[in-house]
Design a protein around this nucleic acid. Structure first.
Lengths: 352, 352
DNA sequence: CATTCCCCTGACAACGTTGTCCAGGGCCTA
DNA sequence: TAGGCCCTGGACAACGTTGTCAGGGGAATG
């Protein structure tokens, strides 16, 4: 049946892309089914006033029988807000970041927003890639745990209105909100604790010097030593990857030689864990204080400088939403206190 | 200059919503700046062929000077695919789910997709809310760690083309892919291990009976006991919340009375942690085997049935992407083996 | 009974992108 | 030199939703 009634294929007639969402029903379909207008469906879906109970019921029925679900992509496109925020962190599998992420999620949820998080794996390039991908998705705000030390790439985004807060480490080369733990003060207190228990030769084993917290903690260590008038031997300090093999080597190294250290300050949770393992196989008792608390550390008697990961996340998220709510003061830096938790390993005296 | 040339405000003239994205530049702006057509910009942005190097350079310059970033919402709307998958889990802060989520993320990344994950907090309603919110964002696929036991609410979504895989626990009342650990076999092996070391009175402390893995592990416990011809006293079995206080009470209860148990099987990582804490303060040595491995368990000498959380996540994600790539076989159930890791606590003999 | 007002509903454009098609110009071939 | 082809670039519609506005009908009021 060659019909001349069918429109003769419009001039620049697009056909649309292929896959579609398995042909999901749209508001238009719902409207047709319910015998109402498109906008009425929109009103029902969004709970807007001005719809007769009877009409609403018909629309609801159509929605259910078709299995309709609003397409948020279209909604976002139209409204300009995604009600979602992004979180770029280092590694979700790290027991430090899990609680932090969860805390952010809870705050987001309280504000009706969804959290999208991604792991940078401590790779600056991947951090940037992720952060920009989140911006392309038009997250309303961004929380970043920096892996890199240059965040100018975020400037256009921030100028375009993406609220941004940095956590755990400050941003590089830009001015922005940042929430962090007092790494310097915590490390200083931890090392002072060891000194107070009689130690004079204390090692510091930490993360790569590229990482701000690692540097700050080292600075705290140096300050505490200096406060006590102690001179640091370069061989006591090891900065680098926190991979178990390297840390193991570093611990063994500071314990070797004619004048081994009598105490170790571990720069973060991963270093602490490996250090504990090595020390467990060591014949001499060595004091240890670690930065970051660890599960079961109480049973193992590990003295730590505890920081509150959840509080970091919560504080950052609250700051972010304050900005999203229109508060527009100067970028500020918030430092959260750390707590020294003595459990035994930090109170071991040096061998007499 | 009152100009009559300006269109006299179109009849039903919409003004558009207010906030917008802080007035971000669009492809149209870039095109105007570069003096090219809209589609040419699109071509450059997407690396499509058919653009002169010179034109491309001009467009790139315009993009950079304007700080343009493609709006993925619009792209998604047009293309029908979001290149993102959703993961609904119980709690990101739980050290079991962190690695699982991370493994899923890596697989997604390898497929060029973004992962959006949310915590259900073990609340069925919240699980549904989250899963449906992800569907509204039109994730291409969904990985769910069930909190509830009825997932029929996902049927319309699956029919509409959302690939769905369940992990760690099977879905309720629908047929779908599922990847889980062998809870039954693992628990049975763990309890058999205790029996082999001479125990006859063994307690089981687990999660709520609403949760599939809890039931399976209990079943494994019963099977092992039956295999050995041992009769279980009801007072040895405690199922309920894994909140520390409750577990603490349960442990104390099975250790009290004239005929206390001599060994405990802990149903998951949280139970194990609390049990270890309680046993550390107990005067009698009590054997313990826990389901799930725990960080530092090696140092504490805790015998566990280890399951590989990362492998669970990886397997599920791979299955998901196979479906997204068009493979369309029957829903299947995959069970991953567990491993008994003897470390001391499970080898403690009963008091003679 | 006429008029006013309000409530409910629907038509329409626009959000920013991509797929399709067409136009124009340059180059090669006959 | 003319014809045809290929390559580049642009116009346009459409994805599914929401904001704006106008129209119709019923109730309330004069």
């Amino acid at each position: 049946m060659a019909d001349s009634t069918r429109p003769p294929t419009p001039p620049g007639g697009p056909r649309g892309p292929e896959p579609r969402y398995g042909n999901r029903p749209t508001m238009k379909d719902v409207a047709a089914r319910a015998g109402v207008g498109l906008k009425t469906v929109s009103r029902v879906v969004n709970g807007e006033p001005g719809v007769t109970p009877d009409t609403e019921r018909r629309v609801q029925e159509a929605i259910e029988s078709l299995g309709f679900r609003r397409n948020d992509s279209a909604r976002v496109l139209r409204k300009g807000r995604t009600a979602s925020i992004g979180l770029v962190l280092e590694d979700l599998a790290d027991p430090f970041y899990g609680p932090l992420s969860r805390a952010v999620e809870e705050v987001a949820r309280a504000h009706g927003a969804l959290l999208i998080n991604g792991s940078s794996a401590e790779d600056p390039e991947r951090e940037q890639e992720l952060a920009l991908a989140l911006c392309a998705r038009r997250v309303d705000g961004l929380i970043v745990i920096p892996a890199g030390d240059d965040h100018r790439y975020l400037e256009p985004e921030m100028k375009a209105g993406v609220a941004t807060v940095f956590v755990d480490r400050p941003p590089g080369r830009i001015d922005a909100d940042v929430v962090l733990s007092d790494s310097f003060g915590g490390a200083r207190a931890g090392v002072a604790h060891l000194i107070a228990h009689g130690h004079r030769r204390i090692a510091f084993i930490g993360d790569q010097p590229r990482i701000h917290t690692a540097v700050e903690r080292l600075r705290g260590y140096r300050a505490a030593m200096e406060d006590a008038g102690l001179v640091i031997d370069d061989s006591w300090v090891a900065l680098g990857s926190t991979a178990p093999e390297r840390v193991q080597e570093a611990v063994k190294s500071v314990l070797a030689g004619p004048e081994p250290v009598t105490a170790i300050f571990a720069g973060n949770n991963r270093v602490t864990v490996t250090a504990v393992r090595v020390l467990a196989g060591h014949d001499q008792r060595v004091a240890l204080v670690g930065f970051d608390d660890i599960e079961l550390a109480d049973l193992l008697g590990i003295t730590v400088i505890a920081q509150d990961a959840a509080a970091l996340g919560r504080t950052a998220a609250e700051r972010l939403f304050r900005r999203l709510d229109g508060v527009n003061d100067e970028p500020a830096q918030v430092a959260l206190e750390t707590v020294l938790v003595p459990r035994g390993s930090g109170e071991i005296p040096p061998p007499s």
